[in-house]
Design a protein around this nucleic acid. Sequence first.
DNA 1: TCGTGTGAAGACGTTCACAGCT
DNA 2: AGCTGTGAACGTCTTCACACGA
Lengths: 222, 222
Amino acid sequence: MGKPLIPGKTIYRLSIYHRCLRRLTENAMETVSSSALAKAAGVNPSQLRRDLGYLGTFGTRGLGYPIGELSDAIREVLGREHLQPVILVGVGNLGAALLRYQGFQKEGFEVIAAFDAVPDAVVTRGIEVPVHDVDLMRDFITQNEVKLAVLSVPVEHAQEVTNELVEAGIQGILSFSPTVLMVPETVTVISVDLALELEQVSFFVKRDGEPAPEVPEDKIVP
Amino acid sequence: MGKPLIPGKTIYRLSIYHRCLRRLTENAMETVSSSALAKAAGVNPSQLRRDLGYLGTFGTRGLGYPIGELSDAIREVLGREHLQPVILVGVGNLGAALLRYQGFQKEGFEVIAAFDAVPDAVVTRGIEVPVHDVDLMRDFITQNEVKLAVLSVPVEHAQEVTNELVEAGIQGILSFSPTVLMVPETVTVISVDLALELEQVSFFVKRDGEPAPEVPEDKIVP
DNA sequence: TCGTGTGAAGACGTTCACAGCT
DNA sequence: AGCTGTGAACGTCTTCACACGA
């Protein structure tokens, strides 16, 4: 069947719009125009209308979009009607910080457990999530039907742990390892490579004060 | 003048290639073919050749690319011949983890100082970088001619701190705040939004075990 | 023969511009 | 008048396919 697929980039922006809409709701607003929401999200109004077009017809010409309905529609498309349980593997510097980080909760994700090769060595100050030995990971995943994992193990163990995750049934991985992970086509991996992002910034900073040569579309916030 | 500009996405991949090349150098290799390097970097060989084409003509037909020369050429284009000093602002959970994180150093960045509104409250275990009061930030930036900053303050202070950074002369910001930062055109901002990335993964995880509907090009690692 | 370099085609994403509804 | 929805133009990125050098 022909699918009315939504482009990946649109999905990303829908998440942004969703967050903006939430702030508007708190301010007891009822409708937004494409130009207002676009400004808040840092995109072109035309692009916003195109993106929202993928959801169906929501706006009222001359008026704008109903915030509540729009927000619900986005949440449904993103598949975020229900809480998604997440596990985190690798409770080192970064992993521990991510466990203390409140941002995932705010966006509706619950990190229900963490795993580490040496859980006893983990400094659990400020961490409320239980940290187990990585040997227990597989059973935990199957028993709790966890689909999402955050991977923050050292790069040299990344592929190995990924294989375990995949075998246990994980279907999506947010990886912080600076390496290319091999996974079956059915598994989604998104990599956040901190050093690489810094390198991007560095490139666009000219040494002699001239303006940046080009705009890296996605990530730039005008 | 007509500029032979390198596309933003190519810049990003050049960083990846550079890292892969380093690993090859360690293994005492002298040349690579586009297909081998492409495989390591997780991209299409054609794309790799096109990307390297922006650097000039390096490869030898029938043989491949000389690793050393290629690596140097990329480093030059990326402007990474010399160490770039970086400061970090906001030493909370995430900020502290980033200070302990070795990945920036590995990629040739030196975090020379950190700033926080309440530096005394910061747990500096394992942190070698000095943490100063944010009041000292401005002078530090001007005196040390720092161009790059990592921003990991709470979202409600992000814009305010950004303004200070920009006024002090910072030209590139790697931000971890889930918000749109307003900066002059001369300043580059790249945002890493952790919750949004997790939301991306979540979307591509189907609830009924069918394969992912589409590939988010950039981030996916095949 | 092997593998680069590149014109040309194709896929994709963004923006314009305006018709049409309220 | 104000603002959405969308065809069409435009620009960018990716991939193909093959000529050519080693």
